[in-house]
Design a protein around this nucleic acid. Structure first.
Length: 420
RNA sequence: GUGAGCGUAGCUCAACUGGUCAGAGCACUGGAUUGUGGUUCCAGGGGUUGGGGGUUCAAGUCCCCUCGCUCACCCCA
């Protein structure tokens, strides 16, 4: 029988990596809380229509990337491909609009998209997610972008590019869409296949095409900025002013058109120069019509999502620090199986002091036990000799200094030496 | 979904044009040091060379199929 392995596109995050995740998550948590955001835990699956209506059924995500299944009662459910739609659903479902606005929430967890895996792209991936709901103030957009940039600054990430754009709103986008279509219509035959199919359904995405021929054609396309309505252009100007206030180095990319339909006005991405082809470390923007498209009242919102895998990849590439690697305070070396009971007592005495402590359970040689103890600050050596005299030999591994302590005092004495 | 590259011990990799080719280093365990680590030395366990079929006297090495991994396109975190 073939060995059972993890399904395609998913992976185990093992101890040599998981502590780095914990560090990133911890930094994010602290930062989000300090910006006034509160954590929510959201379900990992939702009714399929939340995503098909919220994200837009002509998007790649909805068309071909969703993990959709039927539950035993025949309901169509989908593993969430992103968190924003769930956030808005939760906001509506729990009537958060009736409290003070805006509502600032964060969450972190796995997302699922059925894509072909490659560097920095998995079928299950973790996102750090932040959303501000219930405010149209452009300073809120700035807060979102500012939070992401501050996170990357704290994590020590460099070589990042921040691109910002405005994708308009229902007032001005139809006109732009039409202007774009009439500009592109004569060139329709020259566009690539996928752009031709986008022409009717989602012409803005053609601006985003990476193919040289398509890029050349869209070079002379009408500028989004020229067609923004007064409100959108005013909003965009205010966002840029706010970003200047923060001293954020960003630049406008008129071709930035994000793949999810719900974006209005502000769209932005943070790109890492140290990833592979999947170089977006963060993406987000404003989605003032999402709530309505899933059947709710008008609720403006802005947010971002950032991928942990890509953050960690970038940080590793750049040699960033992940804080202190986890290590033990003490390792109990049991020299003689006959006094195993004493060793266990010592182990738990150390643990009751709040110290990180462990011991060997395999009856391994003393030499090998010391090898493991090298990773701890102290080795607590217990043999028949020590046990008989009610003492324990404590060796500081970094210096090699060793002394005897009374068995009953050892734990607290080690704790005070570690100044905890 | 499309394309390219790759699949030999837990890990990183050897094995000339098919002919003792199933190996090394690291890791793990034991020993040298009958109770002391990060340096040495010795020894040991662990692989039906991803799987299946074919060509051949003979295949890890050639052909076909299949599975898997990786990178890229698409799109995005």
């Amino acid at each position: 029988m073939a060995e059972i392995t993890a399904p395609r596109g998913v992976r185990d995050v093992l101890p040599d990596e998981s502590w780095k995740w914990a560090y990133v998550l911890g930094q994010f948590r602290g930062l989000a809380e300090s910006f006034g955001f509160s954590e929510v835990h959201l379900p990992i699956f939702e009714h399929t229509e939340l995503f098909s209506r919220g994200i837009g059924d002509t998007t790649d995500v909805v068309e071909k990337e969703m993990y959709t299944f039927e539950d035993q009662a025949g309901r169509s459910l989908t593993l969430r491909p992103e968190a924003t739609a769930s956030m808005v659903r939760s906001y509506l479902e729990h009537h958060m609009a009736s409290g003070p606005q805006p509502v600032k929430l964060w969450c972190a967890g796995p997302m699922f998209r059925y894509e072909k895996p490659q560097k920095g792209r998995y079928r299950q991936f973790w996102q750090l997610d932040v959303e501000v709901l219930g405010s149209v103030n452009p300073l809120v957009d700035v807060e979102i972008i500012g939070l992401s940039l501050e996170l990357y600054r704290r994590l020590g990430m460099t070589n990042l590019e921040v691109v910002v754009n405005s994708v308009g709103c229902p007032v001005c986008r139809p006109a732009y869409r039409e202007a774009l279509q009439s500009y592109l219509r004569p060139h329709l035959g020259e566009l690539c296949g996928s752009c031709r199919s986008r022409f009717d359904r989602n012409p803005l995405r053609i601006l985003d095409c990476k193919k040289e021929t398509c890029k050349a054609i869209t070079e002379g396309a009408p500028d989004v900025m020229d067609s923004l309505c007064d409100e959108c252009s005013g909003h965009f100007a205010a966002v840029r002013r706010g970003l200047d206030l923060l001293g954020a180095r960003t630049h406008i990319d008129k071709r930035l058109v994000r793949g999810l339909d719900y974006y209005t006005k502000t769209a932005y991405e943070v790109l890492s120069g140290d990833l592979g082809a999947q170089n977006a470390v963060c993406g987000g923007g404003r989605y003032d019509n999402l709530a309505e498209s899933i059947g709710g009242p008008h609720v403006p919102g802005v947010g971002f999502a950032s991928g942990i895998e890509r953050i960690v990849l970038t940080m590793e590439q750049q040699g960033c620090s992940f804080g202190r690697a986890p290590s033990l305070d003490a390792f109990v070396v049991c020299v003689d199986e006959a006094i195993r009971d004493e060793a266990v007592k010592l182990l738990y005495a150390l643990r009751r002091e709040g110290l990180g402590a462990d011991m060997d359970y395999q009856g391994r040689s003393v030499k090998t036990q010391f090898k493991t103890a090298s990773q701890a600050a102290f080795a607590c050596i217990l043999g028949g000799d020590e046990a008989a005299r009610g003492v324990v030999a404590v060796k500081e591994m970094a210096t090699g200094n060793q002394e005897e302590l009374l068995f009953d005092d050892a734990a607290s004495s080690i704790r005070s030496r570690l100044s905890r």
